[in-house]
């Protein structure tokens, strides 16, 4: 493969983007192509271990994720990017264990491969804001999402716990807000941007998710939002896939589209919605897409200069 990208970053997709969150992966790959960043998928990557492993034994979790990091390091990368905040936390947890002098030896013993712990793990959002930069995103916008109201939803993990996330303000983050503004959307202040959606309780305690996700959806609707932008497969699942369930629970109809931030960026870059996986969303986005089409037809913009 000829490499004419301006830069390359190690990419850890994680399991959920192979399943329910496929569109997160598709849209991420698409927009980074426009942004001139090559994603190099970590070869033979394995599951991060997710919740079960770190609840069972943090060292196990560190080792499972450590393998992926070690491979990326061997390929010469200093930074690995992942779309899923859950995977991100596992990757960061592994580096934290490495940095703990009492545990490092155990970790390296289990890993049984060279690992130097100098690699940094970042989310797609953090990479977009800190490495690519808002201006660069703005520069690539062909069809601004003008006239469309979108609220950003960060969830619990993207910026927290602050000590490990080291990104944005833990309680009042603005990175997604700024990206949405850069791609032309109207972004009202969303008070529930970091409120919990109920996470995995969707499986065992539907009432909890009904309440927690329900109030997030209601707040978005009350603010007149056309869509909720997300950056986490689990949040997306609760807000989107379970939306009908929650409608029944709350006795209120939502019908609000819940795309990934990368899908929205892709739209503004003029990428075919199909390539961005818009058709995979559960709450039908057609109304939003039609509206976008109508609005954007009127405003042809200069194509971005490709470096």
């Amino acid at each position: 493969m000829k490499d004419n990208f301006s830069r390359t970053v190690a990419y850890y997709p994680g399991c959920s983007v192979e399943g329910t969150a496929k569109e997160f992966d598709e849209s991420t790959r698409e927009i980074f192509r426009v942004l001139n960043v090559a994603l190099r998928e970590i070869p033979d990557w394995n599951c991060c271990g997710s919740t079960p492993s770190h609840i069972y034994d943090p060292l196990l979790s560190a080792a499972i994720s450590g393998r992926n990091l070690a491979i990326a390091e061997r390929m010469g990368f200093y930074e690995v990017m992942t779309p899923c905040p859950g995977c991100l936390k596992a990757l960061k947890g592994s580096i934290e264990v490495f940095n703990n002098p009492l545990k490092r030896k155990d970790l390296l013993n289990i890993l049984d491969m060279p690992f130097y712990g100098r690699i940094k793990a970042v989310s797609v959002v953090q990479f977009l804001v800190e490495d690519v930069g808002i201006e660069e995103i703005e520069r690539c916008v062909l069809f601004p999402l003008e006239g469309i109201t979108i609220v950003p939803y960060y969830g619990c993990l993207l910026t927290r716990p602050p000590k490990s996330a080291q990104f944005d303000d833990p309680e009042q983050p603005t990175s997604l807000d700024r990206i949405l503004e850069a791609i032309g959307a109207t972004v009202p202040h969303f008070p529930f941007k970091t409120e919990c959606c109920g996470a995995t309780y969707g499986v065992v305690r539907k009432d909890i998710v009904g309440r927690l996700t329900g109030r997030i959806l209601e707040m978005a609707l009350d603010l007149g939002a056309d869509a909720i932008a997300v950056a986490c497969p689990l949040c997306q699942q609760n807000l989107d896939l379970r939306q009908e369930q929650i409608e029944r629970y709350r006795g209120r109809s939502f019908k609000i589209s819940v795309p990934y931030i990368t899908q929205l960026i892709g739209l503004s870059f003029g990428i075919d919605p199909k390539k961005l996986g818009w058709h995979r969303l559960a709450a039908d986005p057609q109304k939003l897409l039609t509206r976008f089409d109508k609005l954007s037809k009127k405003r042809p913009t200069e194509p971005p200069t490709i470096r």
Binding site: D169, P170, E171, Q172, H189, P191
Partner: peptide, 9 residues
């Protein structure tokens, strides 16, 4: 410093 209280907002 406490974003959750929204002082100033």
């Amino acid at each position: 410093a406490y974003g959750e209280y929204g002082a100033g907002q």
